[in-house]
Amino acid sequence: MTTLTRPSLNAHAHNHQARRQKQLGMGAVYALLIIGSLIFMMPLIIMVATSFKSFSEINTYPPTILPNVWLPENYANAWNYQNTNFTRWTFNTLLIIAATLPGVILTSSLCAYGFARLEFPGRKVWFGLVLASVMLPPQVTLIPLYILFYNLGWLNTFYPLIIPAWFGGGALNIFLLRQFYMQIPRELDEAATLDGASHFTIWWRIYMPLSRPALISVTFLTVLGIWNDFLGPLIYLTSPENYTLALGLNMFQGLFITRTDYIMAISTLMVLPMIVMFIVAQRYVVQGFVTSGLKG
């Protein structure tokens, strides 16, 4: 550790100074948070503003930032656009998420535990293969994979979007959780092993609860990934009644006219549940995990 500074003898003065420093620090943090928020909120602001513009106003030069005339009816018009069924597509998207997410969380953490904590022949090789599977550009495996699903009779169903997620939940999720599990002190599982717990019990009772911040990250990214996934649904779902929201968003793109106003309106509606999810899920993230009690 670095050089020690002796604590001030005058405890009162020290406290006072510390509080002032803390307030100053808080002020700086808030300033940074607010400036940063503004910068990162830009796309949302522009998106919401554009969703209220008329189609003519979108096509003016130079572009306006805020609408001259606010058109809330864009939302109703977008929702009821020709040949769309956004209610159904919302349901489809939620169904895919609900059927996928548990598979991702359970199987990715199970596999991650195996890679992080168990010793067995072939472990390194398989971990290498898991990682390697994301290194090949997906454009060239698209057609073989499509033909596989075709032979399984799964085209135009949700199976291709759901079932593979139950087999490990994605290489990057496994890698992420493995990194987290390798950080957890071994004393925890050694103590549990002495108590006669199996690896399965240790994973389920100790690692799952302890890795909550990481599991919540995995959840975020999985839900968001499905919510905005375009290529998968585009390739596998052909009937409009099976579309997802992200795919439906592209129904506004025509040959000669792209209804940017409607795209932005539906995008805004699509973003709202994600914002709610982010805020709500934050409450369940334990602020760091305290190991001192367990260590002693």
């Binding site: 040949n83 169903t157 025509g254």
Partner: peptide, 29 residues
């Protein structure tokens, strides 16, 4: 539960039908 629900939607394909692939443009509709 959800796994069962998610995989439960498959469409039948028996009737004589013709598949028509097109675009959704106001001018083409």
């Amino acid at each position: 539960g959800l796994f069962m629900l998610g995989v439960g939607t498959v469409s039948a394909q028996d009737v004589t039908q013709i598949r028509f692939g097109t675009v959704n443009d106001p001018a083409v509709d």
